[in-house]
Amino acid sequence: MKPGMNIAVLVKQVPDTYAERRLKDDGTLDRDAGEAVIDEIDSRGVEVALQLAEQHGGEVTVVTMGPQRATEALRKALAMGADKAVHLVDDALAGSDAWQTSAALAAALRTVGFDLVITGNEASDGMTGTVPAMLAERLGLPQVTSARKVTVDGTTLSAEKLIDGGYAEVTAPLPALVSVSEKIADPRYPNFKGIMAAKKKPVQTLSAADLGLSNTGGANAASRVVSSAPKPPREAGQKITDDGTAGAKVAEFLATERLI
């Protein structure tokens, strides 16, 4: 580890939210359905890590668990400025649930070493939002989730975190885990120099066996999909062009539908 603050950032590759997303019949994600991108929330996590490392020194390591092509998400983070990457990739991990994902990521993080772990508050595909707290519990860390502002002073982390109906000011001793919320920072665009430099940065790959993981994969998951069914898409109703009376016509529609 370098002097300063060493930060591990988790990034997940997800189906692009701009495209239609699909589940397979067994309820798992159809990862071939659309383009795969670094989850937007995780690119914000990388941005926060880079800003903290710029202030305090230290190294930023990005970590992912996912199929082979998830290296693209790592390269994107490296092009933004992260120093190195760890890719946990193994067919035996396919179909993991949140419990297993947190076990695997915790094992990978232990090999990295860190003062701070940064994650997104909720992945845009699985959306359970439970992996960060599970990781904190497994690693024996305090958790500061859904942060909208983070500062570090010595070994104390201070943050504003979202809560129901507002926000709370919190502090925690380092090492700690932070999950970022959408409004914390806009991710920087990688420039040409960054993209070229990223090609030379180290990406370490790890298998389930490297980390001594057992009972991996969907067949051993702690939660399982029983059934999965698509809902028929909504259909368009009537559409009018305003001729000066559209407000009144909407009111009529609402009255007919007994909505007013």
Partner: peptide, 21 residues
Amino acid sequence: TVDGRDIAGRLAIRLDSGVIA
């Protein structure tokens, strides 16, 4: 909620249990 999911995540590890969110 944000807190509810955090509590669920940590509790699930302590109880060695699966979670549904």
